[in-house]
Nucleic acid binder design. Structure first.
Length: 770
DNA sequence: CAGTGAGCGAGCTTCCGCTTGACTT
């Protein structure tokens, strides 16, 4: 018999809270939302005023029936879901789905998971805020209407199975537009002059690095300047010293954790979230999906103690940070270690590293500012009015820097400034080296997963729980790809002042190497340009912010949610209809030139399965010929010769065991086919030039691997095998696979055993997914 | 896991936000 049933969203939270409440309380979790709009169709009755058709989510049926049973027994149901729009809605959906009388419920909220906070929450219950629930329903219905009306437009006008939505389409837009900026960027260059001076009369030799206070547009100007320096004297003109200080960054939110883990540990956002989830479940950190930088009073006092013990009292500075982001809903604390006195934890390497990062960031946020002394030394040149400047920085008190320094996205950041030698006004300096090197302006950087999340957060698009899934969706739809791309060679002019002359050299450097950056694909570009043209409003960077203002009005009870949705939907739906009626099929088609063999046009465009090249017109009586593109090729960059090459596939490269070896491009990349078996080429193999020897090598390698994975084979049926797979042994027959029942040993299975298992296996059709 | 791409047409695809296991064969 349950007296009081408390329902929270997360099972880990339930476990913790149960310890704080006496035995009169049972704490269970809903595992997030329990009901949603049906996936099958729109599930919004537009005619009747946008009535949503909710159903219990397939994976929540069990949870709901258990909660329902317990709720029935309980005298009181305490709805303790998160204090935000979604949390309020979850509470309401629970009341509906569990069919409890709302009078038998109390709504409670707490910001930190401490005994006091929870007991206080129990003392101050309220009822469900139906205005807030309505704001969530508006959000949900708007997203459904946008997603389920826009996506089918893409199926008709671009390619089946594509998707569009309020969040993902804007994320793609950011990447496509950044690429456009990079393409249209005009590189400019100027000569940066640097000098190395020796301060005379010091032992050991004292060196001063300085930079000229201006840059020269041309090599001639730079050369002229260097020649002036040849005969010049250099003198310390002024020495300026300024104190400065640096403050620590606030503790982690989901977005900043993803950014720092990406920069410092090289984790993808998905990996960061996976590891953080493990840390959360093992009780090491607080909740990892949050937009709040707030720390509980308990955490603040713990931090103070730890800092005092480890670093001393003068390193303490207790701070409460305020969340800047407007979209923040602050249902949780910042991400921090549960026990700040634990600097290290047990776990695997990924967990240890992420935990360490979180620990340092949290502790540093409660530490004193670093004190610096910045020094500028201005060096005059006797033959000209320009001057050199040497900048130095000395840490006089390290403060939080003892523990942690936030990294930046800026890849071209200056090298760290160091200490400068002591000089005084009037000192003569000896020139050791003066260089003028041509430097180039940089186009804006491409997004990484983490810098895209940062941008999305700034725009208020997406939530902590959706950043990682959204980034995976836009890659799964093949709108963007994450990859490394080599920089290109670029020449620059290098001028060095010798004794009385200037040495000029042309040197070569690589342009920026792009590591794990997001690039738009052809499909991403075509879809984005189409959506931006026809659905300006949805694709506008401020669309989400605009609707959020209205959701807030609904939450305050100033507006009915169905009215807001009606105002949005009526013109939106007209646009959808007009677009379907008037827009052409979007293929991104580009004419590459004329095929010398047939005299027909060759085009690059998007086909049903991705980018293709085409010889001839689709309107011709003769069917045009098609060929898929290789990885790395794109409609925009492919040239005529490369396109003609693609039609050379499939090609026979030789024979093996008296059977032909055929190389071609498939859905999953280049392969060699041999007796109806496919063998993937490796990254370094080029389908255009691969030899029979290499193809045979690949085949033998694959055969050996298959053999190693084979546990048993049977003379009765050569399509039937017992194999070793990722998840253990299984039975394979032709294209079907079957699991081996528990208690049977794979190695001992006979042919008859296998047949019996296959016979007993549930048929695929009867096994409906979800 | 793969050999297509027009056309015909049925039947399918799709959103965002909250949360984890069950499961992969």
């Amino acid at each position: 018999m349950v007296k009081n049933l408390v329902i929270v969203e997360s099972p880990a939270k339930a476990k913790t809270i149960e310890k704080f409440l006496g035995k009169d309380f049972t704490v269970l979790s809903s595992f997030g939302h329990v009901r949603d709009l049906s996936k099958k169709d729109l599930s919004v009755d537009i005619e009747k005023g946008f009535i949503p058709n909710y159903e219990i989510s397939a994976d929540k049926k069990k949870t709901v029936s258990e909660l329902k049973k317990k709720a029935k027994e309980a005298e009181m149901v305490w709805l303790a879901t998160d204090e935000d729009r979604e949390g309020e809605a979850i509470s309401w959906h629970l009341v509906e789905a569990l069919q409890i009388d709302e009078k038998k419920t109390k709504r409670i909220v707490f910001h930190e998971i401490t005994k006091n906070a929870i007991l206080e929450a129990i003392e101050n219950p309220r009822s469900i805020d139906h205005h807030l629930v309505d704001a969530q329903q508006a959000r949900r219905v708007l997203d459904r209407l946008v997603g389920y009306e826009l996506s089918p437009v893409l199926w008709k006008k671009v390619k089946p199975a594509l998707s569009a939505g309020r969040v993902q389409s804007v994320a793609v837009r950011l990447i496509v537009e950044r690429e456009d900026e990079i393409k249209s960027f005009v590189t400019d260059s100027a000569f940066r002059v640097t000098a190395v001076f020796e301060v005379p009369g010091k032992s050991p030799v004292s060196i001063l690095n300085a930079e000229l206070n201006k840059r020269f547009k041309t090599a001639d100007e730079a050369k002229k300047f260097l020649l002036k320096c040849a005969t010049a004297g250099f003198k310390v003109d002024t020495v300026e010293k300024k104190p400065a200080s640096k403050s620590p960054a606030p503790p982690f939110t989901t977005s900043t954790l993803q950014q720092e883990a990406s920069r410092k540990l090289g984790y993808s956002v998905a990996k960061t979230m996976m590891v953080a989830q493990q840390l959360y479940e093992s009780g090491h950190i607080t909740y990892m999906r949050t937009d709040s930088v707030n720390l509980s009073s308990l955490a603040l006092s713990m931090a103070k103690k730890v800092i005092e013990k480890n670093y001393g009292e003068n390193y303490i500075k207790t701070r409460q940070f305020v969340t800047k982001s407007k979209s923040a809903q602050e249902a949780h604390e910042a991400i921090r270690p549960t026990y700040l006195d634990r600097q290290e934890i047990s776990g695997d390497n990924s967990q240890k590293r992420l935990y360490e990062l979180i620990w340092k960031r949290t502790i540093a946020s409660q530490m004193a500012e670093a004190k610096l002394e910045k020094t500028n030394i201005i060096i005059s040149i006797s033959t000209t009015s320009e001057s050199f400047v040497a900048r130095g920085e000395v840490i006089t008190f390290d403060g939080f820097l003892k523990v942690y320094l936030e990294s930046t996205d800026d890849e071209d950041a200056e090298v760290q400034k160091g200490m400068l030698p002591t000089v005084t006004k009037g000192d003569q300096l000896q020139r050791k080296e003066i260089l003028a090197v041509e430097r180039f302006t940089q186009p804006p950087p491409r997004y990484t997963e983490a810098s895209l999340v940062k941008k999305m957060e700034e725009l208020g698009i997406g939530r902590p729980s959706t950043y990682a899934p959204t980034i995976s969706t836009i890659q799964k739809r093949e709108y963007v790809v994450k990859e490394d791309r080599q920089g290109e060679d670029r020449n620059y002019t290098y001028l060095e002042l010798l004794d009385k002359t200037v040495k000029e050299e042309i040197k070569t450097e690589k342009t920026r190497f792009e590591k794990s950056k997001l690039f738009p694909t052809d499909i991403g570009t075509v879809v984005n340009n189409f959506l931006v043209e026809y659905f300006v409003k949805i694709l506008d960077y401020s669309f989400t912010a605009d609707v959020e203002i209205q959701f807030d009005e609904i939450a305050r009870g100033e507006k009915a949610w169905s009215e807001m949705i009606k105002d949005f939907y009526t013109p939106f739906h007209v646009t959808v209809e007009n677009t379907l009626a008037t827009s052409k099929k979007q293929s991104g088609e580009r004419l590459l030139g004329v095929d010398p063999e047939s005299g027909k046009n060759i085009y690059a465009k998007i086909g049903r399965y991705g980018p293709i090249v085409q010889i001839g017109e689709t309107t011709d009586e003769d069917k045009p010929k098609f060929a898929g593109m290789k990885k790395g090729q794109s409609i925009e960059t492919i040239n005529l010769d490369e396109a003609i090459d693609l039609f050379k596939l499939p090609r026979e490269v030789g024979t093996y065991e008296d059977e032909p070896l055929v190389v071609a491009l498939g859905r999953f990349g280049p392969y060699v086919r041999h007796v109806n078996k496919f063998f993937s080429l490796e990254k370094t193999d080029d389908p255009m030039s691969i030899t029979a020897e290499r193809a045979i090598e690949l085949i033998d390698k694959k055969r050996l691997k298959d053999k190693e994975n084979t546990i048993s084979e049977f003379p009765e049926d050569d399509t039937l095998k017992v194999l070793k797979g990722r998840y253990g042994a299984y039975i394979s027959q032709g294209k079907n696979n079957f699991r081996i029942p528990k208690g049977k040993v794979a190695e001992e299975l006979t042919y008859e055993d296998c047949l019996a298992i296959i016979e007993a296996a549930p048929t695929k059709k009867g096994f409906k997914k979800k």
